[in-house]
């Protein structure tokens, strides 16, 4: 019955309107099976809307959306049997305890009473929630809530798991825990569609990434290809003397073959480093290029106060892809 060549998700020209707002405006997405697929976009890009349409919670107004070859409109029930959703806002019942939440979902998935209880206990244990099992979820921290939410999503292993901004608002430790969980889930064969606002999260987890903005895909590809199109990193400099900024910008431009951005701050310069090839490891390539640029600046007696090398931020990705900052689109 199931055709294994079929992608996990395939959408064509997907449209969803909220009054005047075109939340999805012709979204074309193909998610292969067995990977973590990152959907990257700023506030209001349409990530949540896309996930809700694919999880059969919203009816699209136009276009096609297939999940494992099944139409989300006409074969919604079959789609529901294979997917699981962890929404952007906790999709667990705040009034119930962690244990009760998992038993509830287990029973609704068809587990018998004892099996549901055993499975709930097993998951709470694995997710480090056993000490909080009998506490109401409203007393949980953000990270615990997330973990419980994800546990509820994998009670019966889904073929496709939607994670809508799973780490927004979490501290670095909780974030790493969620990342470990995601890696374990995908290693076991589930396809994960993960939305995020953070390039480094997509970088850590996803093997393919789609960048969306205003309800459309504006870039798509493997992680490597996407990064190469944006540059491998950005150098942030602060000069001692604002007078020297123009000269410094010129040196950086020629030394790095980079796009240089002059900030509002008169002594700050940001330069995006293109992927120079390096030696396989792109990070190293970026570091090498940056130190070469610093040397050039020193030779011209330009004093650099502070220097940092970072991955391109989502803002920079956006700037590169759309020639406008990411934040513009979110002004609701």
């Amino acid at each position: 019955m199931d055709n294994h060549d079929e992608p996990a998700v395939e959408t064509a020209g997907l449209v969803k309107l909220f009054g005047e707002t075109r939340a999805l405006d012709g979204l074309d997405l193909t998610v292969p099976r067995g990977i973590v697929y990152g959907v990257l976009g700023p506030n209001g890009a349409g990530k949540t809307t896309a996930v809700r349409v694919l999880a059969t919670l919203l009816r699209p107004d136009g276009g096609e959306a297939l999940v494992f070859g099944k139409d989300v409109r006409r074969q919604a029930d079959e789609v529901r049997g294979r997917v699981s959703l962890t929404g952007q806002f906790a999709s667990v019942d705040e009034d119930l305890t962690g244990m009760e939440n998992l038993i509830l979902i287990g029973r609704l998935l068809g587990h018998r009473r004892h099996a549901a209880r055993d499975r709930a206990a097993e998951l709470l244990e694995a997710f480090g929630l056993t000490p909080a099992a009998d506490r109401q979820v409203k007393t949980y921290s953000g990270g615990m809530r997330r973990r419980l939410d994800i546990a509820a999503s994998i009670l019966s292993t889904p073929d496709l798991l939607f994670l809508d901004e799973p780490t927004t608002g979490l501290d670095p430790r909780s974030r790493n825990q969620v990342w470990d969980i995601v890696r374990a889930i995908v290693a076991q064969g589930t396809t994960v569609l993960l939305t995020t606002q953070y390039l480094d999260e997509a970088d850590q987890l996803a093997s393919r990434i789609a960048v969306i903005d205003n309800g459309k895909v504006i870039a798509e590809g493997t992680k490597g290809a996407l990064k190469a199109s944006v540059g491998v990193g950005a150098v942030h400099l602060r000069l001692r003397d604002a007078e020297q900024r123009a000269e410094a910008a010129e040196i950086l431009r020629s030394a790095l073959d980079a796009q240089v951005i002059l900030d509002h701050d008169p002594v700050a310069i940001t330069a995006r480093i293109a992927d120079g090839g390096g030696d396989g490891g792109t990070e190293r390539g970026a570091a090498e290029q940056a130190s070469r640029a610093l040397a050039e600046l020193g030779r011209s007696e330009i004093v650099v106060d502070t220097f940092s090398l970072g991955q391109p931020s989502l803002d920079e990705v956006f700037l590169a892809l759309t020639d406008r900052p990411a934040t513009e689109g979110s002004a609701a």
Partner: peptide, 9 residues
């Protein structure tokens, strides 16, 4: 949010 989960089951 919990309603989203129920409706996706």
């Amino acid at each position: 949010g919990v309603f989203d989960r129920f409706r996706s089951l």
